[in-house]
């Protein structure tokens, strides 16, 4: 860890700009062209920063009564969705900073939000239901009541949504309002990601394991031995590598060949506290990881999931989110003291 104590960044990270939000920063989201970085805090503050200069060009506070829970940037970067503890979803114009649409889902927490890949619609959860709305906020679909709170959602295809909750992962055809496939397993699933080709669904479980299924064969596997529940999961763009948190060590499983079953994963060790965010770069096997000790590390991996750190930096306190600019030439990180930091990538 002695390398990390330097105050200057190391390796491929070059100083970008630093700004802040007013409270514990929840997330950062880049617009598609990289010209805007949105940063939100847990108390409902939203700030829009110029991607290159860090200048704030609009901000808003107290947007969600009692707390902001989730954000999602539209694929074209024109709209920005936020949701909160008040059961509200708001769609913002990124350029103007004004709310275009507001939806209320009731009194429960709206903890998950995600735009579809083509940006035509977005999905959200509230308590035991998942919903899909079009760009204008009109409800297109609502799930049946899940057996328990829906903890994660992900688009598995155009018009196809996956939901995770205690004991199950379910896939729905939104257009025809049909359940397509369901996997069951007696555990509390707290996070979920899908491989880019849609065949693998991987979930982090409360019992400190990662459970995944292959949709084509319905086979499932479990990887246990994590120190904490793995809330952070990310596939690389090709679906070859799955990076998982749940520890100070980043554990990377390789899906090449016949898959990770029976193989040793890559173990990336450098953080001194548990991982709090994972994000693969848009292309290649380059991974950014953030941890509760305030460190941000970039790793270049091979197809086995092993690799070395190529850049490292520190922010003031726990890292809550890291995000690559869509061109892969810059990285943003936000932290628990409201710090918003960007770095350029040297090449």
């Amino acid at each position: 860890m002695s390398d990390i104590r330097q105050t200057r960044n190391t390796g491929i990270l070059r100083d970008g700009w630093t700004g802040f939000v007013e409270d514990y920063a929840l997330s950062c989201n880049w617009s598609q062209d990289g010209n805007v970085l949105m940063a939100c805090d847990v108390m409902g503050g939203i700030k829009a920063f110029h991607g290159k200069s860090g200048e704030i060009f609009w901000e808003c506070s107290d947007t969600h009564d009692s707390g902001l829970l989730a954000t999602s940037m539209h694929p074209e970067g024109i709209l920005f969705a936020t949701s909160g503890q008040d059961g509200n979803i708001m769609i913002w114009s990124v350029e103007e900073g004004t709310p275009k649409t507001q939806i209320n889902l009731g009194s429960g927490w709206t903890e998950n939000l995600t735009w579809s890949e083509d940006g035509d619609c977005f999905a959200a959860t509230c308590s035991r239901h998942a919903y899909v709305f079009d760009k204008n906020g009109k409800e297109i679909w609502r799930s049946e009541t899940h057996p328990s709170t829906v903890t994660a959602i992900a688009w598995s295809d155009k018009n196809e949504l996956a939901t995770a909750s205690y004991g199950q992962v379910a896939f729905y055809d939104i257009e025809h309002s049909q359940l397509l496939q369901k996997f069951q397993w007696k555990g509390s699933l707290v996070s979920m990601v899908l491989s880019p080709d849609g065949d693998v669904v991987a979930c982090g479980s409360q019992d400190n394991s990662v459970h995944f299924w292959r949709r084509s064969t319905a086979e499932d596997s479990m990887m246990s031995g994590y120190a904490y529940k793995p809330t952070d999961l990310d596939f690389d763009y090709s679906g070859t590598l799955l990076a998982t948190g749940g520890s100070e060590v980043v554990t990377v499983w390789s899906f090449k060949g016949s898959g990770p079953e029976g193989t040793r994963p890559g173990q990336l060790e450098l953080h001194s506290k548990p991982i709090s965010s994972l994000c693969f770069a848009p292309k290649g096997y380059r991974l950014a990881s953030g941890a509760k000790d305030g460190t941000v590390i970039i790793w270049d991996l091979n197809s086995d999931g092993e690799g070395n750190p190529v850049g490292a930096a520190m922010i003031t306190d726990k890292v809550s989110n890291v995000a690559w600019r869509p061109d892969g030439r810059a990285l943003a990180a936000v932290g628990s003291k409201g710090q918003v930091t960007t770095w350029r990538i040297r090449n």
């Binding site: 903890e111 328990s148 709170t149 007696k186 509390s188 400190n208």
Partner: peptide
Amino acid sequence: NADEEVFEMSNGCICCTVRGDLIR
């Protein structure tokens, strides 16, 4: 307001129940 969801889970060979909603 919490939904009081009691989840059964195992931790090694110990089976027990926890409040999943509380953890969130």
